[in-house]
Design a protein around this nucleic acid. Structure first.
Lengths: 134, 134
DNA sequence: ATTAAATGCTATAAGCAGATATCATATATG
DNA sequence: CATATATGATATCTGCTTATAGCATTTAAT
């Protein structure tokens, strides 16, 4: 009942980077700060780089920086590259076909809450997260 | 972002059994009706039996029947034996510690929706599901 | 130049949920 | 009684996510 570790790590990384943009963001440094397993962290950083959220600087004193404005990166964008938003559009109980004859009160409740969640995911950018962290 | 297959299958099985209580519920029969992989279905039935929701009758023309009133089996009870309700109490983003400084709008939204969901899970019994299916 | 410290790339391992397979045991039916 | 059809119990396989490892390449600092 939550997002995958890969998604969770991605969100941790990008929100930390957004809040502390002055620091030099190498994989090693992020590993020390966020306690994400180093080799796994590197894979995720590569993935985030490939998806255009951040860009890398190789070589000594290299690292990662944002490659577009933080206003233009929503949580939904990040989730979409890992778990995918589709994971939110499925039945909360995991059914393909509702076995409860459509009268299932689950579905209506979940539909509403799901919409609330997706709305927040879409409306919250990394810039918003920075604001709230201040 | 939804319950595990084991939970989903468990809910399918018990709700089908509740709605069609007149039929002879063998694993084979349930497999035909619900298209759950047969050996996996058998494991789940054993698990549901161990947890006291149903009891088994061995031998030819055997099968499974409820071992307590359907009014006394809530969806939450079923989820608790598989995924566990704890899966609902965690941060939706998968964080142990909120990296967003508590101001995270995620958390308040998720807390409310989570409470809504748990409430429904607790208040909906198999008997209710039968009523709604009629 | 040489070295240290960083990312790029990719192959592989570990762990878990989901799924399968098999044999033992029980029992209704003929 | 013999047999077909159930469940009981348990070992194993598989595929995906999570995690690790190692070598190549780039670049700053000395």
């Amino acid at each position: 009942m939550n997002f995958s570790k890969t998604t969770s790590y991605s969100l941790s990384i990008l929100s930390y980077m957004a809040i502390n943009e002055d620091e030099n963001m190498s994989a090693k440094y992020l590993h020390d700060k966020l306690s994400i397993p180093y080799p796994y962290l590197r894979q995720i950083l590569t993935n985030l780089s490939h998806h255009g959220f951040i860009k890398s600087q190789r070589g000594r004193s290299g690292g990662f920086t944002f490659s577009k404005p933080k206003e233009q990166i929503s949580i939904a964008d990040i989730v979409a590259t890992t778990d995918g938003l589709r994971s939110l559009s499925n039945c909360i109980l995991g059914f393909k076909k509702c076995p409860f004859n459509k009268q299932c009160s689950m579905h209506s409740v979940w539909e509403k809450t799901r919409n609330d969640i997706v709305k927040i995911l879409n409306e919250t950018s990394l810039a918003d997260i920075v604001k709230r962290a201040e």
